[in-house]
């Protein structure tokens, strides 16, 4: 059962700020989504190999060779949060 607590928790993990109305609304919608996916439980997968990847490809590698990347200037081009060649970010805890 989806309750408001679960929605709050998920929102916090996703760093979303939700209003009380939104929490109410999403609790209901979460329930519908899970309900819809329950259909999958009806499929018998007893003797089916688990699938980990949509494509059956394996062992795609790159050799250990150095390639040139971006300059510092280019790396920082898209942000205004920068200082002395570093990106600036929020405190983590």
């Amino acid at each position: 059962m989806i309750n408001k607590e679960i929605v709050r928790h998920v929102a916090e993990l996703a760093r979303l700020k939700l209003s009380e109305e939104e929490i109410e609304k999403y609790s209901e919608q979460f329930e519908h989504i899970l309900e819809a996916f329950k259909i999958l439980d009806e499929v018998d997968t007893e003797d089916v190999e688990p699938s980990f990847h949509p494509l059956e490809i394996k062992n795609v590698f790159r050799e250990d060779e150095v390639e040139s990347g971006l300059s510092q200037e280019k790396a920082l081009l898209n942000t205004k949060h920068k200082e002395k060649g570093y990106f600036k970010g929020p405190r983590i805890v």
Binding site: R62, E65, V66, E67, S68, G69, L70, S71, Q72, A75, L76, K84, G85, Y86, F87
Partner: peptide, 18 residues
């Protein structure tokens, strides 16, 4: 990615790629 791992003593964010 192919960026170098030789990072000691280099400018920050100078051995990066997308």
């Amino acid at each position: 990615c192919g960026c170098s791992t030789n990072i000691s003593g280099v400018e920050p964010n100078s051995l990066c790629c997308p």
